[in-house]
Computed example of a mutant assay.
Amino acid sequence: MLELLKELCRLNGVSGAEDPVRNFIQTQAQPYADSLRSDALGNLIVFKRGKKSTGNKLLLAAHMDEVGVIVTRITEEGFLKFDFVGGVDRRVAIGKPVVLGENEIPGLIGLKAIHLVSREEEEKVPKTDALYIDIGVKDREEAEKLVPPGTYGSFVGPPQEFGQGFLKAKAIDDRIGCAIMLELLKEDLPLDVTFAFTAQEEVGTRGAFGSAFSVSPEVALVLETTTAADLPGIEGARRVCAPGKGPVISYMDGATIYDRDLFENLRRLAEEHGIPWQTKEYIAGGNDARTIQRSRSGVRVAALSAAVRYLHAPATVGSLADFENMWKLTRLFLADQAAQL
């Protein structure tokens, strides 16, 4: 699965421009799918029959999109003004390389040099309108030929294994969920499963609404990442969770109270099979579960996440062992759901 995850992380798929990711996933899923379709929001819905026929009872979901930038206007000098797509921390974006548009025009997020700022400016995080992207052209006309307003941009972060069993890459959020679902599609499943590779999660879980409404499942498991904060200067419950301590089984976050029976089932399965697991020690964040849960007359939801450092940044860090255990626990969950029928 690791090589598949790396390949997914190399792809660019900012919210609303997930096409390269969706096309890759579709090619990978096609040989194993009983049906496959895309919808108006760009979700990819894949159905695979299992040993037990249950129809659309069970949904697995993971989002394809990542945070990035979008060009809003061009200055006379050829610099690109932009806004962020998704919740990017401005402090970590300054000086970072990006690629823009289908031709992957290289650029760099710039800010007025430190030598030119006032003492007051030194003490504040610059607002987005103070930033720009430099693509190395001489004027507006040259810039518009390459990247007209409305062009999406992605951060640059080639996947790399490092340290003691860690991976750093852009877009681990949520290409790990996509990778697990693609691997499951290759297997003989214990029951029918619908896989939703969703769009536009990073801008308000928009794609999940359409996918859940059309599939109308009874139970959904969201495969995600969540904020790891095992970092210097962060104490107590605000450390939330940590890479290397196992998949995160959520009972509640900032957007969803998860189905208690599904939470307990995941916890029990992890403990019975010797899989380390953890919960979030701080209630915050949210994911596609919030939208899926509220679809139609309601859906029972659970979330299984990898603890990842530096979410919504140009590079993120997660544990290879956690990714593997998340895959194992998802398999056990499917078998458990089949046994309950």
Rank of each mutant, 00 (worst) to 15 (best):
D188H: 05
R239G: 14
V299G: 12
R22P: 10
W327P: 00
V219F: 12
Q278N: 09
I114A: 08
L131E: 01
Q278M: 12
D173G: 03
K168E: 10
E264M: 15
G254W: 13
N325I: 12
I70Y: 11
L185W: 10
K48W: 08
M1C: 05
P97W: 04
E122P: 01
Q26G: 13
G285F: 09
T27V: 15
E272H: 04
A335H: 08
R37A: 14
S15M: 09
T198R: 04
V46H: 03
F166E: 02
L36Q: 11
L80Y: 04
N12F: 04
V219T: 11
V137F: 03
L146N: 07
R37F: 14
I105D: 13
S211L: 11
Q337R: 10
G136N: 01
L41F: 14
P20Q: 11
L221M: 06
E66M: 08
G165T: 11
E66H: 07
G136C: 02
E161Y: 01
R331S: 05
N43A: 12
D192I: 06
T291E: 14
L231T: 12
L311Y: 02
P217G: 05
R22D: 01
V203K: 09
V137H: 00
F263Y: 13
E183R: 10
V308L: 01
I257N: 01
E272D: 15
G55S: 02
S118G: 03
N43W: 12
L80M: 04
G95C: 00
V92T: 10
V219D: 02
E264V: 15
L266E: 13
R90M: 08
S305R: 10
R49L: 04
G153W: 04
E187W: 02
V301R: 07
F79C: 00
A93L: 07
Q28C: 13
I172H: 00
A93P: 08
F263Q: 09
D253A: 12
L80H: 02
V14A: 10
N103C: 14
E122I: 07
V88Y: 00
E66R: 05
L266P: 13
L36H: 07
R90N: 06
L60F: 01
P158I: 01
K168R: 08
I172N: 00
K328T: 15
Q340S: 08
G87L: 09
A242D: 12
K57E: 11
K51N: 02
L185G: 09
V215A: 07
V125Y: 06
V137R: 00
I25N: 12
D83Y: 00
R206W: 09
N23A: 11
M1R: 05
A212P: 12
F82Q: 03
H312W: 06
L184S: 08
E224R: 00
Q293W: 08
G13T: 03
V156H: 00
A302L: 11
E281Y: 13
L2H: 03
D65A: 02
H115F: 04
F323S: 07
P247F: 11
L131A: 01
K170A: 03
I70N: 08
S53F: 06
L111W: 00
A228G: 02
I172V: 08
E3T: 07
D336E: 14
A220E: 02
V99L: 07
F162E: 12
G207A: 06
V92C: 05
